[in-house]
Simulated assay, not measured.
Amino acid sequence: MLTVSELCDTYMADGTGTKKASTLPVDKGRIERHIKPLLGKRKVSEINQADIRKFLKNVSEGATASDTKTVSRGRAIVKGGKGTASRTVGLLGGIFTYAIELGLIQANPVRGVKRYPDKRNERFLTGKELATLGHGLSAAEAQGLNGKALNIIKLLVFTGARRGEIEALRWSKVDTAGRRLRLEDSKTGQKSMPLNSAALDILLNLQERAEDRSGFVFPATDGDGHYVGTPRIWSILRERIGLHDVRLHDLRHSFASVGVVNGAPLMVVGALLGHADHSTTQRYAHLAYDPLAAASEQIGQAILEALSGR
């Protein structure tokens, strides 16, 4: 019987064929930093629901927290927490399902274990903050801050796309005539993303000045491949304009929130964002136009005017 550690290695080698390549490093990190330290030496057949509940609790309380030096990035800081614990147990469920397929076990010990609610950050920029960002982008351009990163940030604002989708965008996927980005390898698979006038203008201006032959809209500054320095420039920009807690991914949330507030149906917003599961878009439901609240506001204003003699 394999140990959990050996099962994880087998899973990463042969059981991830349907997963996107971009998710594999995240899975490997969770395996190496949480699963192996706590469960790695145990036999797969020995693991039961009680072990999974204990694992969930330990990771959430920081039992696997660490701060280690790495060759590539300097430091790897692992904190744990409830969100990490829930997502890692979700991965464990997939790994034990693979064990069932191999005939190693009959039942999945993760099944039936209640996880913590995964409260992902849902930070939206307000109208005032969007104006602050707009002024900040203009000032940064005038000051000569990295133009590639600034244009990427603008496209994230106007499209709601994921950072990787824009950083790795190729001209062959930009259909200016059809006003669309035709992405073949997004996080949720192939998708066609409409381009509004603001996003299209940015791309048309870039296309007029394009000289690089790599095929990337935003080629790497040095060497092959595409530009990947947007997070660093965003950190500089957000500190300058006082949006210290705003992540690049929050620009995607902001695109969605503006759409919902302005009356776009949730299913339409989900389609624009490329959500494979409509339930993912439900996080924006509380922003949707409420006709009852609007009617109440109108009635209240009418009564107020009548009471005021207006």
Rank of each mutant, 00 (worst) to 15 (best):
V174K: 00
L183H: 08
E239F: 00
T281D: 03
G225Y: 11
I153H: 05
A140L: 07
E101R: 09
K20V: 11
S5F: 14
N151W: 07
G229D: 13
V44F: 08
T18K: 07
K191P: 02
T126R: 10
L248I: 12
L266P: 11
V44T: 06
S60Q: 10
K79P: 02
R111Q: 13
R42P: 13
L292Q: 07
V4Y: 11
L248M: 12
A85R: 03
A210M: 11
A107W: 11
G300L: 04
L91Y: 14
M193I: 09
I236R: 05
G103C: 04
F216N: 03
G242Y: 01
R33W: 09
G223I: 12
K148T: 13
A21K: 04
A198I: 06
T10K: 05
D201P: 00
V26A: 14
R163K: 14
A63V: 01
A99G: 03
L56K: 06
E101T: 06
G259T: 12
G74P: 06
D9H: 10
A306N: 11
G103Y: 05
V157I: 08
A85C: 11
E184G: 07
T10I: 03
T70G: 01
Q298N: 13
I77G: 13
H249A: 09
G274D: 15
A168S: 15
A168V: 00
S296E: 06
V71F: 09
Y284P: 00
P37L: 15
S279H: 06
L243S: 10
T88C: 14
I47E: 10
L183M: 10
S235G: 14
Q282E: 04
G15D: 15
L2N: 08
L133I: 06
